[in-house]
Nucleic acid binder design. Structure first.
Length: 432
RNA sequence: UCCUCGGUAGCUCAAUCGGCAGAGCGGGUGGCUGUUAACCACUAGGUUCCAGGUUCGAGUCCUGGCCGAGGAGCCA
């Protein structure tokens, strides 16, 4: 007979049927005349059993030879059983060993972070890491569905760029034939051009920052989605950011419950998030933080302790607006009648996870943009095309960037951002 | 880049005042008719990160180096 190859996530639909499962040995146990195999195939974990009153059953010998992470194909009948994890198990009739794994280094007991990072290529198979990356895939799909559903056009901005978008000190330099090029830190400047061509756009890709930062919330290479909308104001863009976050939350909470359970994520703090999120200006935030005992003074950016304090004051994500112009990028539009602050917004996630979104309104006036470039000592020739946008039907416009890994860390309540991407690039680690 | 802590069996850790190198897990062997990180018995397994120094004697003390972790600044 022909055995039907099924994935473990679909196994409950095949109760009573003969099927084939292809996967890896997650764990095994035995008790006299009965043997248990926990098999994973990437979509789930299934318990399979071998039962025989004969001690010398050939399948028993095959079972005994299996080691953790050995690859195998099992065939048998699916049966509903309350005693099995997941409620279904496979009664093995036939088993094929594909390869015996020798000394798999990650045991079911505890390991240090350093050891696990060294074995990241195998750590991905572990239950919690697997769950986090399942949520990541869902998060990315939700982001795309959100923007596509609202008529945004996906614009792929370049990764190799001739100039800096923000500071030049944090750029990765590379050779571009006989000239220098830099790895992109953001697609924003290019998106300002595509927004003038398509009205509302987004880019979604990897970004690179050569910052020597060694914290739980920094990656050297990370993914960012950046919408940009022509004719939009700060107000418009904040609402867009709120809608995006709510859409993502809805998707992940409805479709990835099981993974959040595996991660022991208490979902109540996420479930109570509703529009509108609290909004405060930078001025108000500084006042609040001072009352809470922070040493912050006007004109300084928030540090990690300030972000933690903010999430102790509010139990929803918070939008902080109107930052001092001096601590923000050259392209930020100054507030009307208050030129020392800009129409920018940072969204701080709840539960102490800090900034997940940064954005705002961009300068659309030619003269002001030229003035700012000079003040920031940026080479005009590298920005000619960008300046050009202000000469041909310039309009107010706004956008933001959302960091995928930080958002995922918040959703999964993962302490360190290194677990939110399959192969993290960190300050002192580029292997594996 | 700065501050703090750490490096002992494949892994996670212990080793009192400087005095015989130890446990659990994993591996191996055997047992057990429903296990849930199964359990029980036995068993193999060591360049104590590297180089130098002090000492009768160093995993332990000193000097230098290498590697890692936690935190800070910067940022999404």
């Amino acid at each position: 007979m022909r055995w039907k190859w099924v994935y473990i996530e679909d196994v409950s639909r095949h109760a009573g049927e003969d099927v084939e499962v292809r996967g890896w040995l997650f764990n095994k146990r035995s008790s006299g005349k009965i043997r248990f195999l926990l098999i994973r195939d990437g979509t789930g974990v299934l318990q399979a059993t071998i039962f025989s009153p004969e001690k010398c059953h050939p399948l028993f010998a095959q079972f005994d030879a299996l080691t953790q992470e050995s690859s195998l194909i099992v065939r048998g009948r699916v049966r509903q059983d309350k005693r099995a994890p997941g409620g279904y198990e496979l009664e093995i009739a036939d088993m094929e060993t594909v390869q015996i794994a020798r000394d798999y280094p990650i045991s079911p007991k505890e390991h240090s972070t350093a050891f696990l990072m060294e074995h990241r290529h195998l750590w991905l198979r572990s239950r919690k890491q697997h769950a986090v990356l399942q949520v990541r895939a869902e998060l990315i799909r939700a982001i795309r569905d959100f923007f596509d559903g609202r008529g945004f056009r996906l614009m792929d901005t370049p990764i190799l760029t001739p100039s800096a978008c923000e500071g030049t000190t944090t750029l990765f330099e590379t050779q571009y034939f006989d000239q220098k090029a830099f790895l992109s830190q953001s697609g924003q400047l290019y998106n300002e051009a595509t927004a003038m061509a398509f009205g509302k756009v987004y880019c979604f890709g990897p970004t690179f920052r050569a910052e020597k930062s060694k914290t739980r919330r920094h990656l050297i290479e990370f993914w960012m989605v950046e919408p940009e909308v022509a004719f939009a104001s700060l107000e418009d863009i904040i609402e867009l950011a709120e809608d995006l976050v709510l859409f993502i939350l809805g998707r992940v909470l409805s479709r990835r419950r099981q993974e959040l359970d595996i991660l022991e994520r208490d979902t109540k703090p996420l479930e109570r998030i509703k529009k509108p999120f609290p909004r405060i200006t930078y001025d108000e935030a500084v006042q609040l933080l001072k009352q809470k005992g922070s040493a912050i003074t006007w004109g300084n950016d928030f540090g990690a302790p300030e972000e933690t304090m903010m999430s102790e004051i509010f139990d929803l994500p918070v939008c902080v607006t109107h930052f001092p112009a001096a601590i923000k990028a050259f392209y930020m539009q100054p507030a009307p009648e208050r030129p020392d602050v800009v129409l920018g917004v940072d969204m701080l996630a709840s539960e102490g996870f800090g900034e997940i979104i940064g954005g705002g309104q961009r300068i659309h006036d030619l003269g002001l943009l030229e003035k700012r470039l000079k003040e920031h000592n940026l080479p005009r020739q590298a920005y000619e095309w960008y300046i050009d946008l202000r000469q041909y039907g310039s309009v107010p416009h706004a956008g933001f960037g959302l960091g995928v890994e930080r958002t995922l860390a918040w959703l999964c309540r993962i302490k360190h951002i290194r677990e939110t991407i399959p192969f993290p690039r960190l300050l002192y680690r580029i292997y594996p």
